[in-house]
């Protein structure tokens, strides 16, 4: 059985994936960002979308990835939804991507181990698959852990 997903380009050399319904909006223009000074360095910016505050997670900063060559004004702000519990209301977070997300379909036969250089992502990844197009190993993000947990503890 194949399951729809979105492949998102994190850096020039690294992509990840999220579930079909976890990606909810791709902003056509870069939003006005506001800094929250006391927030962690990997998540200091926020913007207003539909009267909601959307935090922007910087995965390059968080996981010490190679800096992006793609200029800031060419990046694509994308909003994701997640739930910390099955019955909880959806919460939102954003990632600034290198390109517009690409839709794909994933089957169990594509499963592969998480690359060793992404070992620090273990707590933030559901599993990993090999993309048939790029042959890259693509981790499927556990968004609720990325945006709501730190060291395995739900942030309040």
């Amino acid at each position: 059985m194949k399951v729809p997903a979105w492949i998102i380009s994190i850096t020039d050399t690294l992509s990840a994936a999220v579930g079909e319904f976890e990606l909810i909006h791709v902003l056509p223009d870069n939003p006005e960002l506001f800094s929250i000074p006391t927030a962690p360095p990997y998540c200091q910016q926020i913007f207003v979308w539909q009267n909601k505050l959307i935090p922007v997670m910087d995965l390059v900063e968080r996981f010490g990835l190679e800096k992006n060559a793609t200029p800031e004004n060419h990046r694509v702000m994308t909003i994701f939804a997640y739930r910390t519990e099955k019955t909880a209301l959806p919460e939102y977070g954003a990632l600034s991507l290198n390109a517009t997300p690409r839709r794909t379909e994933v089957s169990d036969t594509q499963a592969c181990p998480l690359p060793a250089d992404l070992s620090s992502w273990t707590n933030y990844v559901r599993c990993c698959f090999q993309d048939t197009e790029s042959q890259q190993a693509i981790p499927i993000l556990k968004l609720e852990h990325l945006f709501a947990y730190k060291n395995g503890v739900l942030l309040s």
Binding site: I36, T38, A39, P40, C43, Q44, I46, V48, N51, K52, L53, I54, P55, M57, T84, E91, G93, L146, F147, A148, Y149, K150, L154, L155, S156
Partner: peptide
């Protein structure tokens, strides 16, 4: 008034909430 998003949580922060 909105809560500070969880990803921005910092127990030492003096910020209690955000306002749009």
């Amino acid at each position: 008034i909105q809560p500070i998003p969880r990803a921005m949580h910092n127990p030492k922060s003096p910020l209690l909430a955000l306002a749009v």
